[in-house]
Design a binder for these strands. Structure first.
Lengths: 91, 91
DNA sequence: CAGCATCCTGCTTGATACTG
DNA sequence: CAGTATCAAGCAGGATGCTG
């Protein structure tokens, strides 16, 4: 469910904002490609962690946000990240 | 640090016992191979999550345990697993 | 802007056989 | 028992070009 090079970066970035457009995520997450962004967003969507809003506009306007369910998971993920931080500092 | 097909199964299994031999882990974790067990144990060792005790006996006797550091990480992992459980039940 | 399709590469994994 | 070595396969991921 969380496996994939960019799942966590996407979740954390998305968690920091109420809502975000694709292009913003693409800019904000260094190194990610359009392909992987979309692919991982789809999976996060399927798993109910992220919601997609399509504004049906021209030009296209789509926004993403972390769902309530996804938000419930974040504290645990933050704890793991914190552990990783302190753990990696030592190197 | 946790990425790898068997890292979490190993950690959780190891967490449930004070100490475990290789062969026990091999038996207890369905589907894992000798190779992956050793490989992942080495990495967990390098990351300080697991400790290896070699009893220097003949025949070989080696035991593994979760380190204090590793134990500190477990509550967060358990929380994520719990989330995954409830999440997967719905399917 | 948002997304899809394609090709291509490298890592991770699995199967198997072997050593002390 | 514990571990290593080798080979082949599968899949995730990167680069690129195209669509509405």
């Amino acid at each position: 469910m969380l496996s994939g090079r960019w799942k966590l970066p996407i979740l954390f970035r998305l968690f920091a904002e109420p809502t975000m457009r694709s292009s913003q995520l693409l800019r904000d997450i260094p190194g990610i490609s359009q392909k992987m962004l979309t692919q991982h967003l789809r999976q996060l969507e399927q798993d109910g962690l992220v919601a997609r809003q399509d504004f049906q506009e021209q030009p296209p306007h789509v926004a993403y946000e972390v769902t309530a369910s996804g938000r419930a998971l974040m504290p645990a993920l933050i704890a793991v990240r914190e552990f990783a931080r302190q753990h990696t500092e030592a190197e």
